[in-house]
Simulated assay, not measured.
Amino acid sequence: MATKTNRLWAIAALVVIGTGFTACLKSVDTTPSRPVAAFAAINGIVSSVAVDFYDNGTKATGSAMSMGFAGINYQAYGGVHKFDFMKTTTSTVWATSTYAYDSLQYYTLVTYGDSSAAYVKPIHDDFTGISSTNVNIRFFNLSPNSGAVDLYLSDTKVDSNLTYVGNTSVSTLFKSLSGISSASTIKVTAAGSKLALATLNTATLRGGYTYTLFLAGMKDSVGPLKPVVGYIQSLY
């Protein structure tokens, strides 16, 4: 099964293997590899200015994250981490979270709000009940003024009445989409309407894999804050 194979590789990826400089050692280092936690990040902060990502006071990424960014296979040892999302090239913290994380676990850091009031939600990813044949998804509405929205994959409505994350709890679970083994188009509409707020036509969603989909930006904006749809594939 695809998910089982992915899981085995993912667990292996969460173990730090200290082989980079072993050729310089005169004796064999038998210290067990130390496991880590893996993090993805989604930047939904409504701003034309990007953010930098810091872990316990140290900049953890080389490039700034613009609104709608989704990515990072960031790995860190388990324990307490203070994650800051800072206005790029400054010391201004826009969103921050301090939380204790476990090794060999997967987390998603989701930011939302705007530069005057931004927040980050650490999510412990839960893969219970995912399908090995269907596409598995969850969706976050990060657009503060779009209201409730409906979600379509390749013209099939897969979820409805999805409200802004600032007004509701976020899902740690992924859900299996019965009968959907692939999709290339993600469309978000206003709830009860087929008029698209944002569409992504270049998605690659495959059965047996898990994806976090999201809407970011401001409804009716046509500039850098216009609504965008994005997604990120879990390492699971």
Rank of each mutant, 00 (worst) to 15 (best):
T89R: 02
L104H: 01
K87H: 05
V135M: 10
M67C: 02
T98N: 07
T88L: 01
F139S: 09
N136E: 06
V93N: 08
A100H: 10
I137A: 08
I137Q: 07
T92M: 08
Y119H: 15
V120S: 00
V120H: 06
Y77N: 08
G129L: 01
R138V: 08
T108G: 04
T128D: 14
V110P: 04
T133H: 05
S116Q: 12
T92Q: 12
S103N: 15
I123P: 05
Y99T: 14
A118S: 14
T98W: 00
T108K: 02
G78T: 03
D126L: 08
N134W: 11
D126T: 02
V80P: 07
A118Q: 08
K87N: 05
Y119R: 15
S131C: 07
A117D: 06
G79K: 11
T96S: 15
L109H: 11
S91W: 02
Y74G: 07
N73S: 14
V93F: 01
D114F: 01
T92E: 13
V120Y: 00
T89W: 08
Y107C: 11
S115N: 12
D126H: 04
T90M: 00
F83Y: 12
T88V: 10
A118K: 12
F85M: 05
T128P: 07
G113K: 13
D84E: 15
F83S: 07
D126A: 10
T90Y: 02
T89Q: 07
T98Q: 12
V80T: 15
A118D: 04
S116I: 08
Q105S: 11
D114C: 06
V93H: 06
M86K: 15
N73M: 10
Q75T: 11
H81W: 03
S132A: 12
A70I: 04
H124I: 05
T92A: 14
L104C: 00
S116A: 13
T90H: 09
F85T: 06
D102W: 04
Y74L: 12
F69Q: 06
T90D: 08
L104E: 11
R138F: 06
Y112K: 13
S131N: 04
Y101K: 07
M67P: 00
F69A: 13
Y106W: 01
K87P: 00
T90K: 02
D126G: 08
S131P: 01
M86Q: 09
T92F: 09
S115V: 12
T133M: 03
D125W: 02
V80C: 05
N136G: 07
F139W: 09
N73L: 10
I130Q: 08
D84V: 03
N136D: 13
Y77E: 09
T92W: 06
Q75K: 15
L109D: 09
D102K: 14
L104K: 11
K82L: 11
D102R: 09
Y119M: 12
M86G: 00
L109I: 14
D114N: 15
L104I: 10
N73W: 08
Y112P: 00
R138T: 14
I130D: 03
F69N: 02
L109F: 12
L109M: 15
G78C: 09
I137N: 09
F127M: 12
T111H: 06
D102M: 10
G78Q: 05
N73V: 11
T88R: 00
I72C: 02
T133E: 14
T88G: 04
T92P: 11
S116M: 05
G129T: 04
G68P: 07
T108C: 05
G68K: 04
I130Y: 07
T92G: 03
